[in-house]
């Protein structure tokens, strides 16, 4: 039986492989190729070498977006994980109504980013209007607006992952620690956190990449205003590609650079946190 599976597995893999190739590998390779081309529609392109890559840094909007995105990612990764972990700790204590709270916290994640963006735009503009300001008055408002929105959306999701991690800790470990006289902070630091390290790996990975790739929320909330100051990387790429005639190739090469940055950061992060994981 096992031998048969081994022999025929390419046949079983083939459909997925085909789909993966058509849906991912081929567009990706085409995209890399297009980043060296000048084109209006993707179907007729002319090879021009590295010119697109040189053009990226002629203006400082890409660098600005990069800095803005990095700051945003740092803030959200920290806040989301701390908050999600805290909520998860609370909701594993066995209070009454725990399930209701878990559902409520998780629900924002089920709403699409564009809708969330517009809803929060209305909410935040409503509050800021009292001070004669709007969300797009300056990038600072946009930045914190985005942070609030992202927290609201992602804390619930990460909370679920942390809850699963915390519930997987064997009760006897904590019991043993208690018998040995460990205080609550000590249990948290020396038992719970090392035991949920796999969850932390996943959650930091997700929040990190989500932070970098954030697009619809950004589009709906501020659309980069004012003067592209609240424009994050993904939106900057989109606007370069679609917003400027003759810059399609530049947008494409920005996308390639973006891909490399996200890949490198995600791999480094994965390596760092995985090394801290412990076996039971």
């Amino acid at each position: 039986m096992e031998k048969a599976i081994k022999r025929y597995f390419p046949i079983f893999v083939l459909p997925t492989m085909l789909a993966f190739t058509i849906g991912f590998i081929a567009p990706f390779l085409l995209g890399v190729y297009l980043s060296f081309c000048k084109f209006t529609t993707v179907t007729d392109a002319r090879f021009i070498g590295l010119a697109n890559y040189l053009k990226i840094f002629e203006e400082n909007d890409f660098t600005h977006s990069l800095i803005f995105t990095v700051l945003f990612t740092i803030v959200t990764v920290l806040l989301i994980n701390v908050l999600a972990f805290a909520v998860a700790m609370l909701l594993t204590k066995g209070f009454k109504g725990t399930n209701v709270f878990r559902t409520v916290f998780f629900m924002p994640n089920l709403i699409g980013g564009i809708i969330l963006g517009y809803v929060w735009q209305l909410l935040l503009n409503g509050i800021l209007a009292m001070f004669d300001r709007t969300l797009t008055y300056s990038a600072t408002y946009g930045f914190w607006g985005l942070v609030i929105l992202t927290l609201w959306q992602q804390v619930g999701y990460m909370m679920v992952i942390y809850i699963a991690g915390i519930q997987n800790i064997p009760g006897e470990l904590i019991e043993a620690a208690k018998i040995d006289g460990a205080t609550s902070p000590q249990i948290l630091k020396n038992v719970i956190i090392p035991m949920v390290m796999p969850s932390i790996t996943i959650c930091t990975f997700l929040t990190l990449t989500n932070g970098f790739k954030l697009f619809d929320q950004n589009l709906a909330l501020t659309n980069g205003a004012p003067s592209k100051a609240s424009e994050m990387l993904a939106l900057n790429i989109y606007n370069t590609f679609y917003g400027r005639t003759g810059y399609e190739g530049v947008g494409q090469s920005k996308a390639v650079i973006f891909f490399i940055i996200v890949t490198v950061i995600a791999m480094v992060q994965n390596k760092l946190t995985t090394s801290k994981e412990v076996q039971q």
Partner: peptide
């Protein structure tokens, strides 16, 4: 290897 090459070729040809 064969299937991957086939899949890739199909993808590029489609492109």
């Amino acid at each position: 290897a064969l299937s991957m090459v086939a899949a890739m070729a199909a993808g590029t040809l489609a492109g």
